[in-house]
Nucleic acid binder design. Structure first.
Lengths: 329, 329
DNA sequence: TATACTCGGGCGCGGCCGGTT
DNA sequence: AAACCGGCCGCGCCCGAGTAT
């Protein structure tokens, strides 16, 4: 900043004024300062800025690196946030880097608020963090004071899937559940609701599986080996459903001729590949936008006093080629 | 830190000493300070730390959010870097957030070095950045002074693919190229080399395509409509190859019975789904580790004087179910 | 002399002051 | 009155120089 001031022939204080877009500089000077800064490749020191400006305005995000859906949400958050007012700090998790580490990085950077994606932390842990700074959870409902959340209508989504299958004529339906994941309990409840509403309680059932291709594959193998293959399977998510399809095909079971399969997320792989999977769609951009608005409200003046809000975004069903009427026996 | 000092009954400076693991504190005091810090939920302010400690030791990374391969590399970098000595700052790019923005964030955080993944910036731009701080490029060779790079053996990878196809009996091979992407030119050269070496120059050719499913699909449609379908297609990457397979199947062309397809990256989708794609494998962990070592060398004492290094990591071929001998006509 | 601890200055910036053109 | 200057403080921490056992 000193260098820019010297090069532009003005005082450092004026450069500061220009960069902050504060009053007290002529348009001509503004342009001159910006120009010299550009030619010097100068960028304000974000650390010093954050350190000095007492209000902590940056927004931290934790997300899982290997989850494309979460990547889409993160991209959406960047688009929805006013970056000039709220710099974003990302802190990814992975197989070997857990959420606590990721959060601790955000706290070390003194973020003014954090957005957690599909957090698997217990509600009371999130609540403890929310004592210090606003927490907005995406794709995970949190029943805690002061923790906001934005999630898809998981219940309704599974219901769309079941209704679609019932309409096609299916009654023998299996839902592959994963209650350990964010949204898992809601999806399971949604399945039970839908099954009751459709009056197929005796022929439909849920079994535990998981959120990966391997989990879907293993669950399918168990169904095959037990000789209890249904006419339709609803996967916990697209990855799980992919494992189902893969395994069925390998065992010579045709999809959708013999077994229909529905996924959840409507991720790119469901849409693009030769899979053409019928899937429950949740809108990452809508989730991101809602969370961004909420978090900007929180870091704004008086935002700390707002009661915790839960925002539900609708889901829809994308019908493709892995669902069809059951074979008549 | 003041609060911790007060609570522990010591001076702030001593707390600093303890947290830095520097000499000058008794084991008893150390434990007491850590204990009170833990009970207060205190984490050092990363911004102030970086501001004061003149040596800029943090490592910035830019990567593309919607590229799973890059996500794997980022996870690998976290594992390979000594995080206590070198905090990592991530700065993702997306459809709407370009590399320059991402880099500017890293510069604003005064990173001591940056790792760029599959950068599409021109070499002279990277060189200009490298005037100010060490730059290590992953999955993109850079011919510039002071810019290190770590990349897979793209040439050799394509050659593995072509040799595999030739061994199966293919002569009529098309390579779908994308010279606009990192590694693109090398892969194209590798294709030409391999074709020459195999003596199939008259029947093999490269055509422009792209790096997405749509690009692969469009190129395939052009081949189909021109009536010039080869017996084997090598995609620029897995996503491109996926588009190829998808389009072939929809047009009633069986894979691999009528046309063999090879991808590049050996990403999760190639391995897991019902695709079972033969693909050239590059090792994200090896790339990450090499880059991490290089960057830690650079930020270390005397690291600035090292000449630029290019490190090539070997590729391999993962043979699955999308390649087979050509149909005898 | 060594070990344990304290003190004070300053990193780059923001924000406020009185003063000058 | 608007545009600008110079200076000072302090955000939270690091660190060299100092003090006390």
């Amino acid at each position: 900043m000193r260098d820019v001031a010297r090069a532009a022939g003005v005082s450092p204080a004026l450069v500061s004024i220009v960069f902050r877009e504060a009053a007290g500089a002529s348009p001509r000077t503004r342009e001159k300062v910006f120009a010299t800064a550009r030619s010097l490749g100068y960028v304000r020191d974000e650390r010093a800025r954050g350190l000095r400006s007492l209000q902590r305005d940056s927004i931290g995000i934790t997300f899982r690196l290997d989850q494309p859906f979460q990547a889409a949400v993160v991209a959406g958050v960047y688009d929805a946030v006013n970056l000039a007012a709220h710099p974003i700090v990302t802190s990814p998790t992975s197989e070997t880097r857990d959420e606590e580490e990721a959060l601790s990085d955000l706290i070390a950077n003194r973020c003014g608020a954090v957005i957690v994606l599909s957090s698997r932390l217990p509600a009371d842990r999130l609540a403890r963090i929310a004592d210090d700074l606003p927490v907005v959870s995406i794709a995970r409902t949190v029943d805690a004071p002061r923790v906001d959340w934005v999630a898809s209508d998981e219940r309704g989504g599974i219901r769309l899937a079941v209704d679609h299958l019932v309409e096609l004529g299916h009654r023998d339906i299996v839902y592959l559940s994963d209650t350990g994941s964010a949204g898992g309990p809601e999806r399971l409840e949604g399945f039970h609701d839908a099954v009751l509403a459709a009056g197929i309680r005796d022929s439909a059932r849920a079994v535990g599986a998981g959120r990966t291709e391997d989990a879907g594959s293993a669950a399918t193998l168990r169904l095959l080996d037990a000789g209890r293959l249904p006419t339709a399977i609803v996967g916990f998510n697209d990855r799980c459903a992919l494992g189902v399809i893969d395994t069925l095909i390998r065992r010579g079971v045709r999809v959708p001729d013999e077994v229909s399969v529905v996924g959840f997320d409507d991720s790119e792989v469901a849409a693009r590949s030769m899979i053409r999977m019928t899937s429950v769609r949740q809108d990452p951009i809508a989730l991101a936008r809602a969370a961004a608005e909420r978090v900007m409200l929180r870091v704004g003046p008086g935002g700390g006093d707002l009661p915790a809000a839960g925002i539900v975004k609708p889901t829809s069903l994308t019908v493709r080629s892995t669902t069809a009427p059951p074979r008549v026996r």
